[in-house]
Structures are given as C-alpha cells and as structure tokens.
C-alpha cells in the first residue's frame, strides 16, 4: 500500500454551485505535490476538504488507505494532517513560541513539553530569534514561516501549504523552496503546495495537479505541465508564454 493522502471523486457544491467536481488527487508521502489553477478554481476548497473544514458533498478522503470519514478539523490534525492558511491566521496576541506551543498542547502535550518542542521547532526552522515576539506584529515573511512552524509541530505526516509564497520576493521564495525540501527530506512529510508562483511550483514539486473550475484538467511532472496546451489555455491564457516568470 502506498502511503498517501488521497481524494476520490470528491465533489463539493454550495447551493447548487459546484466548487469541486469529481476530484481525484493524491499526495504521496516524502514528496511535494503542487496544486495550481486560476483564482476561484477550488484550490482552497480542496484543502478545506482534506483538513476537515469542509465536508464533501460526494466522494471520500483517505489517508494511507483509511477513510477519514466526516471527522472535524481538530481530529484530522490529530491524525497528522496539518495545514497553513492563505491569510496566515497566527494567534496575534500570543508570542511566536506560544503560537507553536498551542499545537503541542492541542495535540495532547503538557505545557512544559509543548514549550520545549516549540523551542526546538523554531531552532530547526532557524527563527529562534523571533521566539518571544508577539505574533501580531511580525513582518509578512516571518509570519509565513511561523505559520509553517506551527503546522510542523510534532511532525505531521502531511502538510498542506495554502499559498505560502504570496507576496514574497524571489529570494524569499527560494528560501521557502529550500525549507520545503528539508521538510520532505528531514521530517518525511508529504507536502501539498498551492501556489500562484508558477516558477516556484515547477522548481519545487515532483508532481503537479492543475485545477480549473473545480475539475482536475492535468496531472504530471513539471515538464509535462509546462508543455501542456490545456494548462496554458486555462491557467495563463493562450497568449502568454509559460516561461516561469509569469508573475
């Protein structure tokens, strides 16, 4: 049995509007899977389905072969599926290290152990210097890194990153790519990367799914996606070349 986080035939409709239609997606462990698509394609809805924030209208989600059923979000996290949010969503009144400690405590550790793990994680990410800062006042890039650290507490099996590079400079995006590579190699996570920064996705991912209007229109390694006529048409418009530096 392959270890993966998988959706089978997942459909989500909101009041008759179809957000996702029969989506099959697989995030294998120890690899980076990309999910791209135009705004409104349903990417975030798909992440919500995978993390228990949105119940699918039809279809199912499985992790390593086991059906996740209709578990609430906090139970999904206990099973080892972690996520970040487009808008950061740090606990703005708490310090950075407390932000990470919350996950430890949420997953059942004592405050002392959770605190020690949080300190360890900040060290692993190279952001120990931020530990006692109040999360609310952090610059954008640091906020993203803290959010990833919070999600990585206690080494989840799968990590879903919702537009982590939005608003980052090219160098910062490169740093993030390297961090994702470390997450895969050192922690062994299966990572799902949702990004608008196509250059970064092509560089970072082993496999890419393209979502358009709620349907997966193409799946394959970066080279295939780069060459795909369908993707070019749906995602970037026919006139634009897909040479990476789209944004």
């Amino acid at each position: 049995m392959t270890e993966s986080l998988t959706t089978e035939n997942v459909t989500v409709t909101f009041d008759g509007l179809t957000a996702l239609s029969k989506v099959d997606l697989s995030v294998p462990k120890r690899s980076v899977t990309g999910l791209i698509g135009p705004n409104g394609a349903g990417k975030t809805t798909l992440v919500n389905v995978l993390t228990g924030f949105q119940a699918p209208t039809a279809g199912r989600v499985t992790m390593d072969g086991a059906d996740l059923g209709a578990k609430p979000a906090h139970k999904i996290r206990h099973l080892g599926i972690a996520r970040t949010f487009q808008s950061g969503r740090l606990f703005s009144d708490l310090s950075v290290v407390d932000n990470l400690e919350v996950t430890g405590v949420g997953l059942g550790l004592s405050r002392r152990k959770a605190s020690a793990k949080a300190v360890e994680m900040l060290d692993w990410m190279g952001i120990s210097s931020l530990a006692e800062r109040t999360a609310g006042g952090l610059p954008y890039t640091d906020e993203r890194r803290v959010a990833i650290g919070r999600a990585l507490m206690l080494e989840p099996k799968y990590l879903l990153l919702d537009e982590p590079a939005a608003g980052m400079s090219a160098e910062e995006a490169d740093d993030l790519s390297r961090l994702i590579a470390r997450i895969v190699s050192e922690i062994g996570c299966g990572v799902l990367l949702i990004e608008h920064n196509i250059g970064m996705v092509l560089k970072t991912c082993d496999d890419i799914h393209v979502l358009d209007s709620g349907k997966i229109i193409e799946v394959g390694p970066p080279a295939v996606i780069k060459a795909s006529e369908k993707v070019r048409h749906a995602y970037m418009g026919t006139q634009v070349e897909t040479e990476g530096e789209v944004l």
Binding site: R89, L90, F91, S92, L94, E101, V102, V105, G106, L109
Partner: peptide, 26 residues
C-alpha cells in the same frame, strides 16, 4: 489561565479556525 486548556482557549479566541487546525477541540 496558565493551564493547557487556558492557552488553547485563548488561541481559539484569537483565531478559531487556526486553533482547530492546531488540534484544539474548542
């Protein structure tokens, strides 16, 4: 307030969705 429950609850007060995603049963 300094217990595990107190910390978890304050996180949910700030950001309920992120707290749930951090494993907190609000």
């Amino acid at each position: 307030a300094i217990s595990r429950s107190g910390l978890a609850l304050r996180s949910a007060r700030d950001e309920a969705i992120a707290a749930a995603a951090s494993g907190v049963d609000i």
